[in-house]
Amino acid sequence: MPSYHYRCKNCGYDFSQYQSFDDDPITVCPQCHQEQVRKVFSAVPIEFKGHGFYRTDRSGGKD
């Protein structure tokens, strides 16, 4: 199950919640009980390992 990060716009409370893909997003803050909670989206880190990701990394074969 994926973990989603949420932040309340009213009180600023940050929290993470494991949820199924079928679950509705959380909208009510567990701290101030206002309907001001929104998902926080961030960039996913990508790490390239090994050879072949750049033109200069190939094994010396012909183009």
Rank of each mutant, 00 (worst) to 15 (best):
P2Y: 12
P2M: 14
S3L: 13
Y4F: 14
Y4N: 00
H5N: 07
H5P: 01
H5A: 10
Y6N: 00
Y6W: 07
R7S: 05
R7Y: 03
R7Q: 14
C8D: 05
C8F: 04
C8W: 03
C8E: 06
C8M: 11
C8H: 06
K9I: 02
K9T: 02
N10R: 07
N10L: 03
C11D: 11
C11P: 10
C11S: 10
G12C: 01
Y13E: 08
Y13S: 01
D14T: 02
D14V: 02
D14H: 09
D14W: 03
F15M: 08
F15D: 10
F15T: 07
F15V: 08
S16C: 00
S16L: 01
Q17M: 12
Q17E: 14
Q17K: 14
Y18R: 15
Y18L: 12
Y18D: 08
Y18K: 15
Q19L: 11
Q19C: 04
Q19G: 03
Q19A: 11
Q19I: 04
S20H: 10
F21Y: 05
F21V: 10
F21M: 09
D22I: 13
D22F: 15
D23S: 13
D23G: 07
D24M: 06
D24E: 11
D24A: 07
D24Y: 05
D24H: 07
P25R: 06
P25D: 13
P25C: 06
P25V: 11
I26Q: 00
I26W: 01
I26D: 07
I26P: 06
T27F: 06
T27L: 08
T27R: 11
T27A: 04
V28D: 14
C29N: 07
P30A: 15
P30T: 15
P30W: 12
P30H: 14
C32I: 12
C32W: 08
Q34K: 15
Q36F: 12
Q36A: 15
V37Q: 14
V37M: 15
R38S: 14
K39T: 09
K39A: 08
V40S: 00
V40N: 01
V40C: 02
V40H: 00
F41L: 13
F41N: 12
F41Q: 09
S42N: 04
V44H: 06
V44C: 04
I46R: 06
I46N: 09
E47A: 11
E47M: 10
E47P: 03
E47S: 13
F48N: 04
F48S: 03
F48V: 06
F48P: 01
K49I: 02
K49E: 08
K49C: 00
G50N: 02
H51V: 04
H51K: 04
H51T: 01
H51F: 01
G52F: 00
G52M: 05
F53G: 13
F53Y: 15
F53S: 13
Y54E: 11
Y54S: 09
Y54L: 12
R55S: 11
T56H: 12
D57V: 02
R58E: 08
S59G: 08
S59M: 02
G60Q: 00
G60N: 00
G61Q: 12
K62Y: 01
D63Q: 10
D63W: 03
D63L: 05
